[in-house]
């Protein structure tokens, strides 16, 4: 019997090639890159002060002076959009990091040790999954208090069970592999086996899920800010811009069009990237 050995390096280079050949994923990556660059360069760009009011320019339609128009107290919508990208992207990435940092170790422990440890962690995960993501995030944000930091914590904690379940499932599949048995046979400790041998092999699906969850987290942050539970005024955020805009739909529709379009674009960008990564990292596709 001949065994086909696939090294992680070869797999990742093949995945990278597949990812580069995937046009949708590239479009997604480009969209995300544009928003990331805009968010990072916001302090250096020649744009108006996002919180600076101008009572002489209230609800002005898009023009050469204000490309995306002005809002109900004369603030430049384009400047608020660019600065709002910071809040949205930060919330998306930080909340997913919280979910990964908390969820992956629990999933790893549950899957690796099995038994009562697994039973307790799995039952708790099921209970958390029984509460819909947004309702849980709203409840947590309500009890923690409205702020962008608390919104990120609330969204992150709400996404934890997704990563626990995913990691646990992957570990169950990997822990019976020969190389894990071999590591055990040479007397390596549990933590070393988990971090050196199991984690790198369960990482690809976690990366895919993390990319897709950033999209969900960005919508969740916008939803919480829309409800007044996220970024607090006057700091700009796409969700809170939409909340204000809904009161001026007939007088200033541009106030509602741009922030929503930005959320849609950045979310579609992450979704395309996530789908592309999934296809590239799926072993069945090779």
């Amino acid at each position: 019997m001949t065994a086909v050995v696939t090294t992680p390096a070869r797999t990742s280079s093949r995945a990278w090639k597949k990812l580069r050949a995937n046009k949708s994923a590239l479009v997604g990556a480009c969209i995300v890159a544009v928003f990331v660059v805009l968010a990072l360069l916001a302090p250096m760009l020649p744009i108006a002060d996002p919180t600076g009011t101008d009572w002489g320019a209230i609800r002005k339609a898009p023009s050469l002076k204000a490309w995306m128009g002005t809002d109900e107290i004369g603030r430049d919508v384009l400047a608020r959009m660019i600065w709002g990208a910071q809040a949205s992207l930060l919330a998306g990435v930080v909340s997913v990091l919280i979910a990964v940092v908390v969820g992956v170790p629990f999933g790893l422990v549950a899957g690796y040790f099995g038994g009562w440890t697994d039973s307790i962690i799995s039952r708790c995960t099921e209970a958390l999954l029984a509460m819909p993501f947004l309702i849980l995030a709203i409840a947590l944000a309500a009890f923690l208090g409205p702020s962008l930091t608390n919104a990120m914590i609330a969204i992150g904690l709400s996404a934890v069970p997704i990563f626990i379940r995913l990691t646990r499932g992957q570990v169950l599949a990997v822990k019976t592999e020969d190389y894990v048995e071999g590591a055990r046979a040479i007397g390596l400790g549990h933590i070393r086996i988990m971090t050196r041998y199991i984690l790198p092999n369960v990482f690809p699906p976690i990366l895919v899920q993390a990319t897709l969850t950033i999209a969900t987290a960005i919508i969740a942050e916008a939803s919480l800010s829309f409800l007044g539970l996220g970024q607090q005024p006057p700091a700009p955020s796409w969700g809170s811009m939409l909340n204000t805009a809904k009161n001026f739909l007939s007088q200033a529709p541009w106030m509602a069009i741009w922030p929503g379009a930005a959320i849609f674009l950045v979310v579609i960008g992450f979704n395309l990237m996530g789908d592309g990564l999934r296809d590239a990292l799926d072993p069945r596709e090779h």
Binding site: F226, L242, G260, I263, F264, V267, N271
Partner: peptide, 11 residues
């Protein structure tokens, strides 16, 4: 899947 439903509602 990507459109925030509150924005779709507003539009």
């Amino acid at each position: 899947l990507s459109i925030p439903n509150f924005w779709l509602g507003i539009m």
